[in-house]
């Protein structure tokens, strides 16, 4: 986007950012629209969880595993908590934790990746080799090892997953950063005596934004699924915090009686990842102009 800065003479012809976004949205395919609507819906539910939910997050009623009824729209869970309420609070907790993790992972990965791209030399070598080694262990397995040492608190969960995930962000941002770091304007900025932080923030970062934004969506999906899997395994987000992964696990026995309720939180996870994938797909097409061979 910003890499196509028009020259001053045709500046007035340039449409504002808002109109450009609008025309892009108009041309978006159905799948992208579907994804956007679903994501907005999830965010809406997550932010307003406190006001939408019919009961309190950990409010316990007398009947466990109650069937669907007027009082409990989706029944109750293994301790007699309202499923719908847990689902709504689960949206807030699960998405917030995943977003926080992805943000942290990007903060670490992008800054180190661009720094490595700018400096090259020994710094780049050390960081890249360290990332190679970290990536040679499957991240779920590595996360399990670290969680067994540090215990499963939400903070340690966020930090561990973010650090493991930042290896992939590092690789990408280093790769795209290398292309920009050799440009003349970066050279000029360097000769002007600007510091590394300024060059990264003002010269390199704006030019590597589109691939990083797309990667943010994909990483979010990945982190979201990893946290859901860990919680499902019982070593992620701990009760009584409502969370979709652990909700599936706790109510899984209901499936044996032909009840779909435990599939709902799992379905909520699946729907969100599919939607994010749709939007990222469209965004990649729209920003890169790439059409993969069909």
């Amino acid at each position: 986007m910003t890499s196509f800065e028009p020259i001053a003479a045709i500046q007035r012809l340039r449409r504002s950012r808002a109109t450009r976004a609008k025309t892009a949205l108009k041309k978006a395919p159905f799948s992208a629209w579907f994804g956007i609507v679903v994501i907005v819906g999830y965010v809406f539910v997550a932010v307003l969880a406190h006001w939408i939910a019919p009961y309190g997050e950990t409010q316990v009623f007398s009947e466990a595993f109650a069937p669907w009824s007027q009082e409990f729209k989706l029944g109750t869970d293994q301790l007699g908590r309202d499923m719908l309420t847990r689902l709504i609070y689960g949206a807030r907790n699960t998405i917030a934790i995943a977003v926080a993790t992805t943000l942290l992972s990007f903060a670490v990965g992008v800054s180190l990746g661009l720094l490595a791209a700018l400096h090259r030399g020994w710094l780049d070598q050390i960081l890249s080799r360290a990332v190679d080694v970290l990536m040679s262990i499957p991240s779920l397995i590595f996360a399990l090892v670290l969680l067994s040492i540090f215990g499963s608190s939400i903070t340690s969960l966020i930090v561990i997953i973010a650090l493991l995930d930042s290896t992939r962000v590092f690789r990408l941002s280093r790769a795209v950063g290398l292309n920009v770091a050799v440009m003349e304007y970066v050279e000029v900025a360097r000769l002007r005596g600007e510091g590394a932080r300024w060059i990264i923030a003002k010269e390199i970062l704006p030019n590597v934004m589109p691939p990083l934004v797309a990667e943010f969506g994909l990483r979010f999906c990945f982190v979201f699924l990893t946290i859901a899997a860990l919680s499902f395994l019982g070593v992620g987000i701990q009760p009584p915090t409502a969370d979709w992964g652990s909700m599936v696990r706790e109510n899984a026995t209901l499936i044996t009686y032909g009840d779909v309720t435990p599939l709902l939180p799992a379905g909520a996870i699946a729907l969100l990842t599919v939607s994010v994938n749709f939007v990222v797909d469209w965004f990649l097409h729209a920003t890169s102009g790439l059409r993969d061979e069909k």
């Binding site: 999906c221 699924l225 859901a228 899997a229 499902f232 992964g245 599936v248 899984a252 499936i255 044996t256 009686y257 032909g258 779909v260 435990p262 599939l263 799992a266 379905g267 996870i269 699946a270 990842t273 599919v274 994938n277």
Partner: peptide, 29 residues
Amino acid sequence: TLTTISFPEFFVAYMLAYLVISRDTFIGS
């Protein structure tokens, strides 16, 4: 394949289990 790729494993697993179970429970549900 695009759909199965973005589903968490446990979702696929429970869906299959549910399918097998509803073989017996569906008619009475």
